[in-house]
Simulated assay, not measured.
Amino acid sequence: MGIRVDLTFDTVNAEALAEFWKLALDYEDEPPPAPFATRAEWAASFGEPDDDEGGGAWLRDPAGAGPRLCFLDVPEPKTAKNRLHIDVRVGKGDDAWQRIRAKSAQLEAAGGRILTTVDGHHIVMSDPEGNEFCVAA
């Protein structure tokens, strides 16, 4: 079996940030691994304390092509620019810039923020917790 890549976000609110990225990437919630019925049951299998306040959320690409995304609550805040970022690709074509602008507007309405616009090419944004990403063709 080949190597897979998961991307993990440290978060303030894992469930809310996962909702944003589901919209951004057309991803879906990943069910807990078998034989567990819930993520809480899965976490308990590691001996996690019942009073653990850290949340988590897991997303997958329904087509199976993209990486799994993990969102884990951590106590410390984001303090610097990302060293790695996601590019949300809307596809090439004559109307690519229009689709880039439409996707950016959709994500801005969902709590994202436009940071920089490079007319005709890409838009740099941040998600609701300040993680930078680009929307491009």
Rank of each mutant, 00 (worst) to 15 (best):
T8M: 08
T8C: 09
T8F: 06
T11K: 06
T11Y: 04
A16F: 10
L17K: 09
A18R: 06
E19D: 14
L23P: 01
L23V: 14
L25A: 06
D26G: 09
D26I: 02
D29C: 00
D29V: 09
P31L: 13
P32F: 09
P33V: 08
A34D: 04
P35H: 02
F36A: 06
A37G: 13
T38F: 01
T38N: 04
A40Q: 13
E41T: 01
A43E: 08
A44D: 10
S45N: 09
S45V: 00
F46E: 02
D52T: 13
E53K: 15
G55I: 15
G56F: 12
L59F: 11
R60L: 13
P62N: 07
G64R: 10
A65T: 15
G66A: 15
G66E: 11
P67G: 02
R68N: 14
L69Q: 03
C70N: 15
L72K: 01
D73T: 15
V74T: 12
P75T: 09
P77M: 05
K78Y: 04
T79C: 10
A80P: 00
K81N: 10
R83Y: 04
L84D: 02
D87S: 02
D87R: 04
V90T: 10
G91F: 09
K92C: 00
D95W: 01
D95M: 03
A96S: 14
S104N: 03
A105H: 04
E108A: 15
A109M: 08
A110K: 01
A110L: 03
I114T: 14
T117V: 15
V118E: 06
H121S: 10
H122M: 12
M125G: 04
S126V: 14
E129C: 02
E129Y: 02
E129Q: 09
N131M: 05
N131I: 03
E132M: 00
E132W: 00
E132A: 08
E132C: 00
